[in-house]
Each structure stands twice: as structure tokens, then as C-alpha cells.
Simulated assay, not measured.
Amino acid sequence: MNIAISDQSLLRQAAAAAAGGQQYPAGTLYLVATPIGNLADLSLRAIHALGLVDALACEDTRQGGALLRHLGLHKPLITLHQHNEREASAGVLARLAAGERVAYASDAGTPAISDPGAVLVQAAVAAGYRVLPLPGPSSAAAALSVAGDTVAQGFAFVGFLPTKAGERRSALQAVLAVPLQSQVVFEAPHRIADLMALLAELAPSRSVTVCRELTKQFETVHTAPAGSLPAWLAADAQRLKGEFVLVLHAAEPVAVAADGLPAEVMRVLAPLVAELPLKQAVALAVQITGEPRNRLYDAALALKNAAGDEA
């Protein structure tokens, strides 16, 4: 999308009016969040800061250059990605030492969140330079906002799971075992079907919010039990395309009876106690549930006494 020169000037004027009152100290590294699919999501403060900086370090100079041209700006570009971050950071620090303002932008979203940037930040802080965030687009935050996970008491950012099958299964099992947290997982289109199949196998009843192509023209947001996701994905070939963010909802808390046993264990124990001698009922319950015998015996005895009182 190209903006006319007059429109670019008006945009930068609006950015200066909105964000120019804040200080932008020299010798500072600015982390700039960039759009994840919709250029209109670039903040006015980010536009103003990009106009002030002396250079832009970016994950891909083609992307960074296109962003600057969109705004009618021209800045020196520094390539800084995951394969050269330590070496390229030295060049950024040299500019900061000279009193320059330097911005860093990854290809899309917020730097250092499943993107390069963390090594640069660590190096800048260790060298005594200020690092200031210019917040904005984040696919993880966007996905969490539309997930509607009312059970969660916080969230964890997982990012991409391992690609090897065994490691992937183990990692997902560990993620699913974390209680009372939403888990944000990224996935590439060529692996999304395998991930959904694995989720359906390991946690079929767990709610999952699938976000595809967030902020773009054909974005999709779909929340459903994991067990239904493979069929949903297979129903439309378009659903296999694009970048994916999944929010694995927190598991519903397990109801616990007054004696500390989960309600589902009590549902197993109660009919056994009603139909069998106490010791036999407890022995069977131990085999079925795996709960400690002494806890089951106490619960069974309470059930038996309660039944006697009612009689």
C-alpha cells in the first residue's frame, strides 16, 4: 500500500502532534512494534520515533525499508537477525556510543517475542545504554484478547513447539499439564494439521482458540474443543494457509469433595460402596482410580455411615 507524499507528510504531522511531547533521549535503543498484517496498526508514536532515529536496525532490510518508504522516511538500515544478532549488535552499540538514536524492528510484531531482539537488548543494557519500548502489535496479545478464557489466572507464552515428533509430544504434554493458565502457541501452516491431531489425541475436551492470519483481510478466529479441530481444519482447504496462533485454554478446575478427593473419584466410589462390602468396594476403587487406600477407605466409611443415617 502506497501513500501519497502529501498524505505521508500529514501522517507524520499527526504523529508529531500526538507523540512529540514525550522525550526521546539520544544514545537510546528504541524497540518498535510493527504491524503483523495491517499497516494501519502502526502507532503514531512509532511513526514519530522512526522519524527521529538516526538508523533502523531490522530483521530484514527489505521489510524495514518498505516500512520507511511507506512513511516517506529514509534512514540507514542495519541487518540484525537471529543468525548475526551478536555481531550486528556491536555496530548498533557503536552508534549508541556516538549519541545516536537507533530503532530496532523485527519483521512483524513486537521484537524479542519469538523474534530477534533479546540479544541486542541484553548487550545494550550491559553496556549502560537505555532501551525504551514502543509497544504495539503482538499476535500473542491479540490472540489472548479474543480467546475469552474465563478460567485462566494468567498466561504463558510458549511460541513454537519442537519439530521432532517425540520432543513435540513431550513438550505439548508439559504445556497441557500446567494448571490455570492460557498457553500461547505459534505454528507454521505446514505443521498445523499435525499439531491439531496431537491436541485432539492428548486433550480432546480442552478448549482451543485458533487464530489464523490475524489482522489480515481473511483472518479467522475459531474456538472449539481440541477433539473437533482436525475435522474443522479439513473442512476448508483455505484454513491450512497462513500463520497460526493457538491459545490453549486453561483446564477447568477439578471439583474436590469435602474430604479432598476429586469429585470424579467419588462418583466411582459411591456406587461401589452402595453395592459391595466396604473392603471390597475400597479395593476396587483403588484399582480403578489409583488413589491411596487410606483416603478411599475414610471416604467410603463416611459414605456408608451417611447412608445408614438416612436409613
Rank of each mutant, 00 (worst) to 15 (best):
Tyr30Lys: 07
Gly136Lys: 04
Val273Gly: 04
Arg191Cys: 06
Leu73Asn: 11
Ser138Tyr: 07
Glu264Leu: 09
Ala57Gly: 14
Leu120Ile: 07
Ser6Thr: 03
Ala33Lys: 06
His81Thr: 09
Ala55Val: 11
Glu264Lys: 07
Gly148Pro: 12
Arg169Val: 07
Ala94Thr: 11
Leu39Lys: 07
Ala281Leu: 10
Ala112Arg: 05
Ala203Arg: 05
Val245Arg: 01
Arg101His: 02
Val184Leu: 08
Pro253Val: 13
Leu134Met: 14
Asp149Glu: 05
Leu199Ser: 12
Ser228Asn: 13
Leu276Pro: 02
Leu68Ile: 11
Tyr30Gly: 09
Gly65Ile: 03
Pro262Ala: 05
Ala108Glu: 09
Gly91His: 05
Arg295Asp: 11
Ala140Thr: 06
Ala224Asn: 10
Ala255Ser: 14
Asp60Lys: 03
Ala17Trp: 04
Glu291Ala: 15
Leu132Ala: 13
Val131Phe: 08
Arg267Phe: 01
Asp259Tyr: 03
Ala307Ser: 12
Leu248Ile: 06
Gln183Thr: 00
Val158Ile: 13
Gln8Ile: 05
Gln13Thr: 03
Leu176Met: 02
Arg101Trp: 01
Gln122Pro: 00
His190Ile: 02
Leu44Tyr: 02
Leu31Asp: 05
Ala108Gln: 10
Gly117Pro: 11
Ser9Arg: 15
Tyr104Lys: 09
Val221His: 12
Val121Asp: 12
Pro262Val: 08
Ser205Thr: 14
Pro35Asn: 08
Val158Phe: 00
Gly21Val: 06
Ala156Phe: 01
Leu272Arg: 01
Pro204Phe: 13
Val210Ala: 09
Tyr297Leu: 08
Leu93Phe: 06
Asp7Tyr: 00
Arg86Glu: 15
Arg45Ser: 02
Ala193Asn: 07
Leu195Thr: 10
Ala18Arg: 08
Leu233Glu: 09
Ala165Phe: 00
Asp60Val: 08
Leu10Ala: 15
Asp7Arg: 02
Val265Arg: 03
Ala143Thr: 07
Pro230Phe: 04
Gln280Thr: 14
Lys279Tyr: 03
Leu80Pro: 04
Ile5Val: 12
Glu167Val: 00
Ala156Trp: 00
